[in-house]
């Protein structure tokens, strides 16, 4: 069982590493958590008190959350009364939102936020607190109106959260023009392994001409003069490994 959990987690990490956009990262997460009933994912760096709504939105890293809820949440400044945010900034352990109920029983504003979230089909959630290199708190949440989470999945989701968030952050640092198609990423991965165009064409079952064409497209996308630089860039940005 534990070996299988590990293997599944390792395949998930590989899939996240291949994701070319924050949205693709979200997609990968949702495909894993859907069997438990989770349909939404949200992750971001926790804004400091006093930050404007716009600055708060800029801190969002992954967003597959009901759009109307996010608009309401940020424009109403819910963030600073949200009990899940309070917990993220004070604890390192993942938690179910239902485990926080005792902590906000006395706070009408916190209770209102959680009740309203339920109306937007975010009644059941699970959050993983994180800590960035800069020392900022960050949170990763999955939610839906109804879901369940076997206790032994918490650790797996904690790993899933960290890798997803790390990948999304590094994608955010990347120049937006550099987005490779999955096929281009494959080609570049094989170039990085030292394979010739002919070898790559055999591996991927395409013509040698197409491999050469894709290699040139990749160079253009990175704005570099040669394949080595493209590989270096791609490694730096973890497009390939």
């Amino acid at each position: 069982m534990s070996r299988r959990s590990l293997d599944e987690t390792l395949s998930f990490i590989a899939a996240v590493d291949r994701a070319g956009s924050a949205d693709a990262v979200s997609e990968t997460i949702l495909s894993v958590v859907k069997p438990f009933g989770f349909s939404q994912v949200f992750a971001g760096i926790i804004p400091l008190p006093g930050m404007s709504a716009q600055q708060q939105v800029a801190n969002v890293v992954l967003h597959r959350w009901p759009e109307t809820w996010s608009q309401r949440y940020f424009s109403q400044g819910y963030l600073f009364d949200d009990p899940t945010i309070q917990r993220v900034t004070t604890s390192t352990e993942p938690f179910l939102w239902s485990e926080l109920e005792d902590s906000y029983r006395e706070s009408p504003s916190a209770k209102r936020i959680m009740d309203e979230a339920r109306e937007f089909n975010l009644g059941f959630g699970f959050t993983v607190p994180m800590l960035t290199l800069d020392g900022q708190s960050a949170g990763f949440s999955i939610a839906s109106d109804r879901a369940e989470l076997p206790p032994n999945y918490r650790g797996r989701l904690q790993l899933l959260a960290m890798y997803s968030f790390g990948r999304a952050l590094s994608l955010a640092e990347m120049p937006p023009s550099v987005k490779l198609t999955p096929r281009e990423a494959d080609v570049l991965q094989w170039i990085a392994e030292g394979k010739s165009d002919w070898e790559i064409s055999k591996i991927l079952h395409v013509s040698e001409h197409l491999v050469d064409k894709m290699a040139r497209q990749i160079r253009t996308k990175f704005g570099v003069a040669n394949r080595t630089q493209a590989v270096a860039q791609a490694l730096r940005h973890k497009i390939i490994r």
């Binding site: 994180m130 800590l131 290199l133 650790g155």
Partner: peptide, 27 residues
């Protein structure tokens, strides 16, 4: 596990050897 993100951000290629487990009140 809270330190994992930090290591990733420092360009370590981090691979889990197992799933996080509870140890006292921490993981």
């Amino acid at each position: 596990p809270i330190w994992l993100l930090r290591l990733v951000q420092l360009h370590f290629r981090v691979t889990p050897l197992g799933i996080p487990q509870e140890a006292g009140k921490d993981s």
